[in-house]
C-alpha cells in the first residue's frame, strides 16, 4: 500500500515554536485527556451530582433507594452473572486456545473463526441466539421444547458466553502461543505426564492471558444491557437494564444506580489492578 501522493514541502517559514518544541508530545497527551475529560469524565461527574438529592429530604435519599431490596439484588445478580459467564468463557476459551496453540494444523483459520464474531454487531449475535431457541427455530422444531432456555437465566448466560468468548480466547491464545516449546519438551523429557506438564508448566506460564481474558469478559458481561433484554426473563434484569428503565421515570435514581454500579465495578477492578497492571493487560488486545 502506498500512502501520501507526494511529499509535503511547507513554505520556508519557521513553524510556531510550539511545534518545534520537544514538549509537543505532552501537549498531545493533554489534547487526548482533555477530549476524554470533556466528553466522558465530566459527564460522568455531572451524573454523580445528579444522584444527590438537593431538594426536600436527605442528600442521599436516592442512594437509600438505590441500595434497597430490588436494586441491591440486581447488583448482586449482575456481579454473579458476570462471574458465571467469566468462568464458562475461561474454561471454553482455554480449551480451544490450547487446541489451536499446540495441536491444530490450521491455526490461522481456526483462530480467524474464533475472532470473526468480534466484527459483527453484538445485537445481531444475541438475535441469532434467540432465533435458535424461538418456536420458529431449529431447537423447538426438532425437540418441541426450548428446554426452558429462552427468556431465562440460562439463556442470558448462553448469550453472554457466545458474545464474549472471543475476548477470553484471544489473550489466552496469545499467552499460550508465546510459551517457549523448549519448556514443554523439557518437562516431557523429565518424565512429566501431559497432565502434569499442563499443570506445572503450561498453566502457570499462561496465567497472564487468563487474567486478561477474565478481566475483559467480566467487565463486558457486567455492563451488558442487550443479553438480558433480548434473552433474559423479567427476573434476569441486570444493572444496565435497571438504569435504563429508571432513567425514564427518575433521573436522580438512575444516576445513583449508575454511581453504585460503577463504584462496585471499579472496586473490583481496583483489587484486580493491584495484582495485574490493567494498562498492560489491555494492550494484549
Amino acid at each position: 500500500m502506498k500512502f501520501g501522493i507526494g511529499n509535503v514541502r511547507l513554505p520556508n517559514v519557521k513553524p510556531p515554536s510550539m511545534l518545534r518544541d520537544r514538549s509537543m508530545p505532552k501537549l498531545l497527551v493533554m489534547i487526548g485527556l482533555g477530549w476524554l475529560s470533556l466528553f466522558f469524565i465530566i459527564p460522568v461527574i455531572v451524573l454523580l451530582f445528579e444522584s444527590f438529592n438537593f431538594g426536600d429530604g436527605a442528600l442521599l435519599d436516592n442512594y437509600r433507594q438505590a441500595l434497597s431490596g430490588t436494586y441491591v439484588r440486581t447488583l448482586g445478580r449482575t456481579l454473579a452473572y458476570a462471574f458465571v459467564t467469566t468462568v464458562v468463557c475461561l474454561i471454553l476459551g482455554y480449551w480451544i486456545s490450547y487446541y489451536i496453540a499446540f495441536k491444530a494444523e490450521h491455526k490461522t483459520l481456526m483462530l480467524a473463526f474464533v475472532l470473526l464474531p468480534l466484527w459483527i454487531a453484538i445485537i445481531i449475535r444475541y438475535f441469532g441466539v434467540s432465533l435458535f431457541f424461538l418456536p420458529t427455530g431449529p431447537v423447538q422444531q426438532l425437540f418441541g421444547t426450548d428446554f426452558g432456555i429462552l427468556f431465562s437465566t440460562t439463556g442470558t448466560i448462553i448469550g453472554l458466553t457466545s458474545a464474549l468468548l472471543p475476548f477470553a480466547t484471544l489473550p489466552i491464545y496469545n499467552a499460550l502461543q508465546s510459551i517457549d516449546e523448549e519448556y514443554i519438551h523439557a518437562s516431557q523429557v523429565l518424565g512429566a505426564t501431559p497432565l502434569k506438564t499442563l499443570r506445572t508448566v503450561i498453566f502457570p506460564l499462561s496465567l497472564s492471558g487468563i487474567i486478561a481474558g477474565a478481566l475483559f469478559v467480566y467487565i463486558l458481561a457486567a455492563g451488558s444491557f442487550l443479553a438480558p433484554a433480548i434473552l433474559g426473563g423479567p427476573g434476569d434484569f441486570m444493572m444496565a437494564n435497571i438504569i435504563e428503565q429508571s432513567f425514564s421515570y427518575s433521573i436522580p435514581l438512575a444516576a445513583a444506580l449508575s454511581v453504585v454500579f460503577t463504584v462496585a465495578l471499579l472496586i473490583l477492578i481496583g483489587i484486580f489492578n493491584h495484582y495485574a497492571n490493567i494498562s498492560e493487560v489491555l494492550s494484549d488486545l
Partner: peptide, 21 residues
C-alpha cells in the same frame, strides 16, 4: 489507564451521562 475507562464503564452509563451532559 484512564484513557481506557470508557471500556470499563457500562455503555448504559456513558449513554445516560452523555445525554444529560
Amino acid at each position: 489507564t484512564i484513557m481506557l475507562l470508557p471500556l470499563m464503564i457500562s455503555p448504559v452509563i456513558t449513554g445516560v451521562a452523555f445525554l444529560r451532559f
